[in-house]
Design a protein around this nucleic acid. Structure first.
Length: 731
DNA sequence: AATCGTAGTGTTTTT
DNA sequence: CACTACGATT
């Protein structure tokens, strides 16, 4: 059969194992999506399973779309009816049908992180909490975490002695109540409420269990506890669930992703068959070898070694720049070389530059502009998080769900129409006392003559306007409605009056939103406001990225996951940046940084460039960074060191020179600084020529200025300048 | 109610 | 350095 001919033995086995729990460890570039799509195709075409029986979950809309396209390519028309979606949109869809059983209305709105924070702040203010003492951000992530663990406000038992937890319990409770009163849910709720729904109403769960006989999960290493709970609810231990993931590419632990889910899977589904895909189709032997030898340093991982039949390829080029500008120039220089050496018609799109943090994009961007090289920055400032977009969406959200006081509050004075904080406070406390929504409260305040004449007039005008919008929602098409809102509220006029560059770009963004809307309306016949809002709420910038234009792509390492490029640059290979200095203290945190690096390396198909800068200005201050420890984990023979252009001794790299003079020993990585500056870390054991052995207590500063406090067993604590101390690291 | 000034604060962010 | 968030000012 032709389907199976395209697969290697391991892939074939994964496709053919349709019954029972299946765990596929899919290494980078091992054809994971191919396995998933072929498996779906096989189920439908060969096993005669109706498409509607299949449920495939991904993490991003983009991945879902890609999977759908590829399945359609294999099956054509008969692919229709498969549920392929993200966890969140699947939950949203389920909740649209059943959320009334949980006491919400079916036209609920979805709040994003910013809405969430606003809402949280109001709650905290009402409870009289000091933002300095209890940071809203901390509360927010604590609540998120509780939701990720499947904990409802009722279930959460704060520790009696922990003041933060006690407050948290209070805030969480109130936060959730008010959210419900707004008929709104946050991202966490989509998952939490769905599991709750399934727990409380087994008959609802039953319908989905009966509906989906085959469940597949992509990027399983990124699932969090509640997502796993959800899967376990849907699939009994004997049923057909196939999860695909790679523990080496787990880079969202800090966001609640639980790599342990992979390990627990075999425990929770004892009959699990495990298949490991180790043949890589993406990269050259050299790149793969480098990536392998790095990731193998991790202690917490499933052992696997990727291999490939691809050619050996070029060595990895490593460059040490003076500063970030020179680093950017290096990237440009190499891109230009690639351009002239490559007959490809669209060379730019074959190139990507990865960095650890967004702030690094700046120097690069400047260089790209200067040299007229087309580029796009993926991620960063997000379209749907822009103020003007969120303002308009707030109007639309309220129109589709008038209980949404949060959105109403956002737009009540935007653009400014003289309704101030005081009036608003009055109406809010009035509403709160009577358990009314802000909208109802406004109407009641007017009726009862509660406000000053001026405020009354303003509120009256505002109410009339938005009630008009509300009436139009049924009869007027989406784009038209939005246009009406934009003109009626004078939103556009105000921006045009401003005439600043910023206002201009806001206008452009609004245009963009309108065209997205029109597209949506055409795509989805009679696409409703509600489904548009849902799509938009669950969409991200990365989903919009398609790499269809001939441009160099710039992005963070996190964004790079799941993508591939013939030529890859990884800049900023420095201690403090990669691994990042703000990471946690546990080994797991360091290992996650290493995986992040690994993800970057494995994106490259043919050529990989690594670079670091000796000095880099962060927050306006120049700092000298040590080379990343990860550089030492690459086999030296795979590295070719690029000299700065125009320097003497071009033909021989400094690594070679240092090897000759004995400054570098064979087997050591490339980052060992020739002048003997050590990447000293707290807790390291060192030997000093005079004082003997000691342990590092603390390290301050960098490079020549670096000082370390070391506790020697012979003479006690000493503070030494590392440069002169001549230390030897023992462990 | 809008504007201005200053203090504080800097990772990554699939939904 | 660059951005924001909040408070004081007009």
């Amino acid at each position: 059969m032709s389907l199976l001919d395209d697969l290697n033995p391991a892939q074939k086995e994964a496709v053919l194992t349709t019954e029972g729990p299946l765990l596929v460890f899919a290494g980078a570039g091992s054809g994971k999506t191919r396995v998933l799509t072929y498996r779906i195709a096989y189920l439908i075409k060969e096993k005669g399973i109706p498409p509607s029986r299949i449920f495939a979950v991904t993490f991003t809309n983009k991945a879902a779309e890609e999977m759908r396209e590829r399945v359609e390519r294999l099956l054509g028309r008969s692919a229709r009816g498969i549920w392929i979606s993200t966890f969140h949109s699947a939950c949203a869809r389920i909740l649209r049908h059943h959320i009334e059983q949980l006491g919400y209305q079916r036209n609920f709105v979805i709040y994003d992180e910013e809405d969430q924070e606003r809402h949280l702040k109001t709650v905290m203010k009402e409870l009289g909490l000091d933002f300095k003492m209890f940071h809203p951000k901390a509360m927010q992530s604590a609540i998120d975490q509780l939701k990720n663990e499947g904990m409802t406000p009722e279930q959460f038992q704060p520790s009696y002695y922990n003041i933060f937890q006690k407050r948290l319990a209070q805030v969480y409770q109130r936060y959730q109540e008010d959210l419900k009163r707004n008929n709104g849910v946050d991202f966490g709720d989509l998952l939490l409420l769905t599991t709750l729904l399934f727990k409380k109403f087994p008959e609802v769960l039953r319908t989905y269990q009966d509906l989906w006989h085959y469940v597949m999960v992509d990027e399983f290493q990124d699932t969090n506890l509640i997502q796993y709970q959800l899967l376990r609810q849907l699939v009994n231990t004997h049923e057909n669930i196939c999860v695909v993931g790679d523990d080496d590419q787990s880079i969202y632990r800090w966001r609640g992703a639980e790599v342990g889910n992979i390990l627990n899977f075999e425990r929770d589904f004892p009959e699990t068959k495990v298949i490991t895909l180790e043949q890589n189709y993406r990269s050259t032997k050299n790149i793969l070898h480098a990536a392998n030898s790095m990731v193998q340093r991790n202690r917490f991982r499933k052992e696997k070694v990727l291999w490939t039949e691809n050619p050996e390829g070029e060595r990895i080029t490593f460059f040490v720049a003076k500063d970030e500008r020179e680093e950017a120039d290096f990237v440009i220089r190499k891109i230009k070389e690639y351009l002239s050496a490559n007959p490809s018609s669209e060379p730019y799109r074959e190139v990507a530059v990865f960095y650890r943090i967004n702030a690094q994009s700046r120097a690069l961007e400047e260089a790209f502009v200067k040299h007229h090289i087309p580029y796009t920055i993926v991620g960063g400032l997000k379209f749907y998080e822009r103020r003007e977009i969120k303002d308009i969406l707030a109007y639309l959200k309220w129109v589709s769900n008038p209980s949404d006081s949060l959105s109403l509050r956002r737009i009540i004075n935007v653009p400014s129409r003289g309704i101030g904080e005081k009036t608003l406070e009055k109406i809010e406390s009035y509403s709160r006392e009577r358990g009314l929504s802000l909208y109802e409260g406004m109407k009641a305040c007017l009726a009862e003559d509660w406000l000053s004449p001026l405020a009354k007039e303003k509120i009256f005008g505002f109410l009339q306007m938005i009630e008009d919008f509300m009436k139009e929602v049924q009869s007027v098409p989406l784009t038209q409605l939005t246009m009406n809102i934009l003109t009626q509220t004078k939103y556009l006029d105000r921006l045009k009056e401003e005439g600043t560059e910023e206002a201009l770009s806001r206008l452009e963004n609004i245009d963009e939103l309108l065209s997205v809307m029109m597209e949506f309306e055409q795509e989805e016949e009679g696409g409703s406001l509600q489904s548009f809002l849902e799509r938009v709420s669950l969409m991200t910038e990365v989903d919009l990225y398609e790499n269809k234009e001939n441009r160099v792509s710039l992005m963070t390492l996190h964004c790079a996951k799941g993508l591939e490029f013939p030529v890859v640059f990884m800049v900023g290979m420095e201690e403090g940046l990669l691994p990042h200095y703000r990471r946690g203290e546990e080994i797991e945190d360091l290992e996650e940084e290493r995986r992040l690096c690994y993800v970057g390396l494995t994106r490259a198909k043919r050529k990989l460039y690594l670079s670091r800068a000796e000095r880099r200005s962060t927050f306006g201050v120049g700092r000298a960074n040590l080379p990343s420890r990860f550089l030492d984990e690459l086999p030296l023979e795979l590295i070719e060191v690029e000299e700065p252009s125009g320097e003497e001794e071009k033909d021989r790299g400094w690594v070679e020179r240092m090897k000759e003079t004995g400054e570098i020993l064979e087997g050591e990585g490339i980052s060992w600084h020739p002048d003997g500056f050590y990447p000293l870390k707290m807790g390291m054991k060192v030997r000093h020529p005079k004082f003997g052995e000691g342990r590092v207590r603390s390290v301050e500063g960098m490079d020549e200025e670096q000082k370390a406090t070391i506790l020697f067993s012979s003479v006690g604590p000493k503070r030494l300048k590392v440069k002169y101390a001549n230390l030897e690291i023992i462990e």
